[in-house]
Amino acid sequence: MAQLTAHKRVLHADLHGDRIRAASGSMVAVEGNVDFKSSGMGGGGGMRAALKRAVAGESISLMDCSGSGRVYLALDAMDVLVVDLAGDTLTVESEHILAHTEQLRLDVQFSGLRGVTSGQGLATTTVSGHGQVALVSEGPVMALEVAPGAELVVDPDAYVGSRGQLSMNLVSGVSWKSLVGEGSGEPFSLRFTGHGLVLVQSAER
């Protein structure tokens, strides 16, 4: 079975006659006999999902890597993190997805108001099933716990993904607006409540 291993900023994808999906253009080197084929936009689900993505603007271009050998994948010298999923669901900003094993399912979910003004992430991507997903981030990812009494506010540019029973609200207002520069960044932040983990990267842009 295909195996994903993170080596700081490079992902090793070892293929044994099977297939993974990876962000288009992320292949930096390849050993063995591996074929690359564009698999269009991320996720499955046919026409309806494709339409949803077109509307949502949450799109990533993916490629199929199949065969036997090792593919070296990297994106803009960002750190790589491999997450093993065992039937659970991870919510991820799509531009952070570097690769995933074949058995995982990518879906697009609307997340309400989020992104109304930013033009980015009207919807977010969920990854679910059994397998591995590799994420990229600026600097290592921190997993910040959210629990009752420990609500978390995150800069939208630092937000990578989340899991658990979380609800996300927009925080706006004078206090927040003074925090971001004129015309730079988004005029709101994300407040998470509930129970779960929020993945945050080390750079705000």
Partner: peptide, 9 residues
């Protein structure tokens, strides 16, 4: 030995 960087930039 081939040297490869972790970026397409």
């Amino acid at each position: 030995t081939v040297y490869v960087q972790a970026s397409e930039q």
